[in-house]
Structure formats: structure tokens, C-alpha cells
Design a protein around this nucleic acid. Structure first.
Length: 576
DNA sequence: AAACTACGCAACCGCGGCTTA
DNA sequence: TTAAGCCGCGGTTGCGTAGTT
């Protein structure tokens, strides 16, 4: 059903009631009742009509615009045009530096809540912000830069804890919150809001659909636009389906497998259980934006009190009539309840990277720091290549066994050792996090294992973010976790074994990756002897247990992974 | 100079929430 | 209580333009 048709259902003027503007651009769609509506770019004449109408009748009641003004536009189109271009006090032109910073911070907190973000940017529209952000994502993704400046990440992680303290959490569910929040794994307010909202619901989720931890992870690790580096071509409904599934799964996991949380003495393990063993290195985060949800799509870093720039305190009442959330207090986000689906929370949770470095130089107004970053990157890459080649021997070493289950992670660890085991601001050695592999990322599937070092190295270098204030040390560290961004690094052997047995899936996976990664990498994947690696994997009992739960449809194990997720991964990976 | 590519913006589309009858 | 309509949001697409080859 086309948009025009649906709008026509609301009752539009018939064709004989109006005249088609002659010589005007745009297409015309006739809907069921004969109304012909125009699509495409607006003309100044149309703008004038709409402005005049709004002057007389005010905003709202958009469907009546066409009826009363003769404008051959549907209500939606009128509202959009008004909100984005015609309404008074609209700010035109490039975003200021302050605005850009605010957007970044807001996005870190809210995710892709463009309208809500717009509420804090007077004169700016949600669409404008959205476009800006998407552009920014693309730029930074191309540049291998972190989506969020370390400064924001740090603020986010600091703020989240404050928020936790301030908001307080129902003791009965504290465990959940602790798991999700205590360690600042980039959980946005939305997540906590939803948890609160769903606290009474979670325990009653009847079943766990076939969601897959992998899909969660994929989304978390690879989302792109909107945080999500998800393939833009991915059909929305498909994503919705996944989202729904994920939501259910997560919720169900809360219920059916919540004992899992009991296993965790702290949030780290819980996070790991969810495949969230962030190697909390600001650099790695920064350099693996894909991993940590630089995207996004949801992609909030953390809830909490940002040391938001001035505009934060200047949050104004929404101007856009379209805005539904009249938030005027950024500081209140953490306490506010969002109607956002839980899935978003999960999504964000996983994607949100904690980071702990402070960025000294904020992006310049128009280039968002990208130009500088790119220049810097160009400079550092040359040296990085030399260094990374030396590192390659280490990175290719895989130790069988439980620890080896994290083959990829071991790779990272190896490099971590080289560069020192960076302690995250949260106090978690990155390597420790890696050591305790998640059921998803830990088992060391073929895809889990380190791809050919050469490839990794290349990718590492190319994806190295050089956000603003990289020191030589940071630069070195930048090569540590990038392999995690590889889809293979995120997959789990159990994951593959599910249902059809890994042998078959292995082939599928290999082919899928080959197809998705392109010639350069596919050949490398195909050459890998995946089976041997699988056989070497000795998952920890804990993970096996979890996987069992997943296999029975209860949750978060790697069980029901769908290859539908792969495009997102590969899209994300985007090896230059 | 032409072709190609990337980028940015405006607009469209589908879905979900809210309101109302 | 529920169904229909309206509105708004977020995601996606299409197109014009600038930059590159």
C-alpha cells in the first residue's frame, strides 16, 4: 500500500475538486477514491499555500490541509514540510560546534531518538539531526574512527554510575540492573527505562523465540546506522523481526535463564554472558567502533550525566509539533521512563562501548574532527603497518583449550600483553574480559579464530581510529582488538552447530562470509580449516550450559543464530 | 571534458502510539 | 473494549551536487 493510498483513506479531495498544478515537478499518485496527490520536491507555491494555511489554522490537523487549501499533498507530507522547512525559527545552515557536540552527547544517551534530540537543539529538526548523524557515521566509519569521541565515552561511563546512584533501583531487580549498569557497559537510559518499565513483565515472558545471541551480538557489534552498521539494504521488517525476536529472547532470558545471572558475581560476567566482554580499552573501543556499537543504531554509550556542553542545560521545550517527548531535562533521562522497546535496550546495551579516554580536541565545527583524524590516520597508518607486521606472528597464535576457546580474543590478549593490559576506567583489565569469553564470542568457531594475520593486520590498520588525541601508546594499542570486528571473531562454534550441525553450517558460513566479505577476504576464510578449530574447542561448562539453554529455546546461548545477521556484520566490517 | 563516485539533503514509507467515537 | 483515524518517529530512498579519476 502506497503512502498516497493510505493517506487517501483519510479522505482527500477528489480529482475533480482540484487542479493539478501544471508544469510542476513531482509525481502524482492517484489513490482509490480518485484523489491525486503530489509527491516529490515542494515548490515555492506549495510552500506558500502551506504557510498560509498554518497561519490561519495553526499546526496540526494536517490531513485537513489538503481539504481546505487545495494543496495536493498528503497530511504527512505537509507536516514534514512544515516541520523541516517552513516553520519559524528554524535554524538553517551547518551545525555549530556546540550543536555537534551536543548531538554526539545526546546520541550517546538516547540513541536514534532524533526527535528527542531535536528537542534539545532549538531550531533543528529531527530529520536534520538524523541526516547529520548518518553522515557522520559514514564518515567516521570510513575513517575508522570511533563514533563517539572518547570524551563522550568517558562522560557516559562516569555519568551512568552517577545516574545509577541517583535513580536508585528496585532492590528486587537490582541484580539485573547491576548486571547491566554497574559496569557501565554503555547502557543507555533507554535500557534502564525499559527495564524499569518491563520489570513486571520480564518474569512473565512466556517463551523464547528463536533469537539468537548471535543476532544480538551481531547487532550489538555491528550495527551501523543508527547506530547500526547494519546493512542499509536490510529490509526493515526483517530487522524488526529480529528485533522482536531479540526482545522476546532477552525478556525470556530474563525469566527462563535468569539463573544465569546468579552465576555472575558481578556485572562483568553477566555482560560476558551476553557477549559483552568489552575489552575496555578506550583505544580499542575507539578503533573498533563497529564492535562497540559505534553505531549504532542504537548505540548509546551510557546513561548518566554527561558533562554536556552548554546546550544541555539550555534544553528547551520542543518546538517541533512532531515531538512527542517534551523532555526538558537531560539530567532526568535516567529517571524517565521510555516507551522504547526493550530490544532497543538490549541492542544499545551490547553496542554501547565504554571508553575511558579523554579527548582533548573536539571535532571542528564542520568536519567533526574527521579531517584531522583522517590526516592523523594517514600519518599513523604508515608506521602502524610496519609495526603490525611485526605483531602478526603473535596474533596468529592460537592456544587450544578453554582459553583457546577465545582464539580471537587470545589474539587480542597477546597484543594486549605487548602493550600492557590496559585497565578500563571501570577497572576491568581488558584481557580478563577477553579471557572469560562469552558463549558467543568465546567458543572459537572457525570464524572465531583469527583470520589470517595478514588480513587482520591490514584491517586493523585501516580501521584504526585516530580520534583526535592519539598518543603513540594509544596508537600501539589500536591494533589489539580489531579482529573482534571480524564477523568470525564474533561467532561461536556452538552457534554453528545448532540444528544442522556445524559441518553444514560451516560450509554455509564460509560461503556466506565469502560472499559477503568479498574476494579479498573470502578466499582467506575458505582456506581456513575450520573443522579442526572447532574440534579443538573445549567450551567451559558454563558456556555449554548456557548454550543448552539456548538450544532449547531459552535464551541467550549461541543456538539460534541466523545468517540473516551476516550482512550486518560484513557491512560493518567494510574492509577498505 | 566526460564518466564515475561519494556525499548531503529532502522527501517518502511503514509502523506504532495516541486519541476518539 | 475496540476499531478507526490521526499523528509522529525512525529508517530508507532518491536526487542533485561536488569531487575525483
Amino acid at each position: 500500500m502506497s503512502r498516497t493510498t493510505s493517506e487517501c483513506e483519510d479522505g482527500m479531495i477528489s480529482k475533480d475538486q482540484t487542479e493539478l498544478p501544471l508544469g510542476e515537478e513531482g509525481s502524482y499518485d492517484e489513490c482509490t477514491n480518485g484523489v491525486v496527490l503530489k509527491k516529490g520536491p515542494w515548490t515555492s507555491a506549495e510552500d506558500a499555500i502551506l504557510i498560509e494555511y498554518v497561519k490561519k489554522h495553526g499546526e496540526g490537523n494536517w490531513n485537513s490541509v489538503q481539504k481546505h487549501s487545495g494543496l495536493l499533498r498528503c497530511g504527512k507530507s505537509c507536516r514534514l514540510r512544515w516541520a523541516n522547512h517552513l516553520r519559524p525559527n528554524l535554524k538553517k545552515g551547518a551545525f555549530t560546534q556546540e550543536e555537534e557536540q551536543l548531538i554526539i552527547e545526546l546520541h550517546a544517551k538516547m540513541g536514534n531518538k532524533w526527535a528527542r534530540m531535536a528537542a534539545h537543539l532549538p531550531g533543528r529538526t529531527d530529520n536534520e539531526i538524523k541526516n547529520y548523524w548518518n553522515t557522520r557515521i559514514k564518515r567516521r566509519q570510513r575513517a575508522g574512527l570511533p563514533l563517539y569521541p572518547p570524551e563522550v565515552c568517558l562522560q557516559a561511563s562516569q555519568g551512568s554510575q552517577q545516574c545509577l546512584d541517583i535513580n536508585g533501583i528496585d532492590s528486587g531487580n537490582k541484580g539485573q540492573h547491576d548486571v547491566l549498569q554497574t559496569h557501565n557497559y554503555g547502557i543507555p537510559d533507554v535500557m534502564f527505562d525499559n527495564l524499569k518499565t518491563n520489570q513486571s513483565i520480564l518474569p512473565y515472558v512466556p517463551e523464547l523465540p528463536d533469537i539468537s545471541a548471535s543476532s544480538v551480538l551481531m547487532k550489538g557489534l555491528c550495527s551501523s546506522q543508527h547506530g547500526s552498521f547494519m546493512s542499509p539494504t536490510m529490509h526493515r521488517q526483517k530487522r524488526l523481526r529480529e528485533t522482536t525476536t531479540l526482545q522476546s529472547s532477552f525478556s525470556g532470558g530474563m525469566k527462563n535463564d535468569f539463573h544465569v545471572f546468579d552465576q555472575f558475581q558481578d556485572g562483568d560476567k553477566a555482560a560476558q554472558y551476553f557477549g559483552l566482554s568489552f575489552p575496555f580499552d578506550p583505544d580499542s573501543v575507539a578503533k573498533n567502533p563497529e564492535i562497540f556499537g559505534e553505531n549504532q543504531g542504537s548505540h548509546t554509550l551510557a546513561n548518566g550525566n554527561f558533562s554536556a556542553s552548554k546546550p544541555t542545560s539550555e534544553a528547551v521545550k520542543l518546538e517541533l509539533p512532531s515531538l512527542q517527548y517534551a523532555e526538558t531535562d537531560l539530567g532526568g533521562w535516567g529517571a524517565s521512563c521510555s516507551s522504547s522497546p526493550l530490544i532497543e535496550s538490549v541492542d544499545t546495551f551490547i553496542q554501547s562501548p565504554p571508553t575511558g579516554t579523554v579527548e582533548s580536541n573536539f571535532p571542528s565545527p564542520r568536519n567533526s574532527g574527521l579531517l584531522d583524524a583522517l590526516l592523523y590516520e594517514a600519518r599513523t597508518l604508515s608506521s602502524a603497518k610496519n609495526r603490525s607486521s611485526d605483531k602478526s606472528s603473535n596474533s596468529s597464535t592460537i592456544t587450544p583449550g578453554d582459553d583457546a576457546a577465545c582464539s580471537v580474543l587470545n589474539f587480542s590478549e597477546t597484543e594486549w600483553e605487548d602493550y600492557g593490559d590496559t585497565i578500563s576506567p571501570l577497572g576491568h583489565p581488558a584481557t580478563s574480559l577477553f579471557r572469560e569469553c562469552t558463549p558467543i564470542s568465546a567458543s572459537g568457531s572457525s570464524l572465531d579464530e583469527s583470520p589470517p594475520t595478514e588480513t587482520l593486520t591490514e584491517y586493523n590498520m585501516k580501521s584504526e581510529p585516530v580520534d583526535h588525541t592519539w598518543t603513540p601508546d594509544r596508537e600501539k594499542e589500536s591494533y589489539t582488538h580489531l579482529n573482534i570486528t571480524r564477523p568470525d571473531a564474533l561467532l561461536d562454534s556452538d552457534w554453528l552447530e545448532h540444528d544442522s550441525g556445524y559441518g553444514k553450517d560451516q560450509v554455509i558460513m564460509t560461503e556466506a562470509i565469502a560472499a559477503l566479505l568479498g574476494d579479498d577476504l573470502s578466499s582467506e576464510y575458505k582456506q581456513m580449516d575450520l573443522s579442526s578449530e572447532y574440534k579443538q574447542m573445549d567450551l567451559s561448562s558454563e558456556y555449554k550450559q548456557m548454550d543448552a539453554g539456548a538450544s532449547t529455546g531459552h535464551g541467550w546461548g549461541p543456538g539460534s543464530c541466523s545468517w540473516n545477521n551476516m550482512p550486518a556484520v560484513c557491512q560493518m566490517s567494510e574492509f577498505p
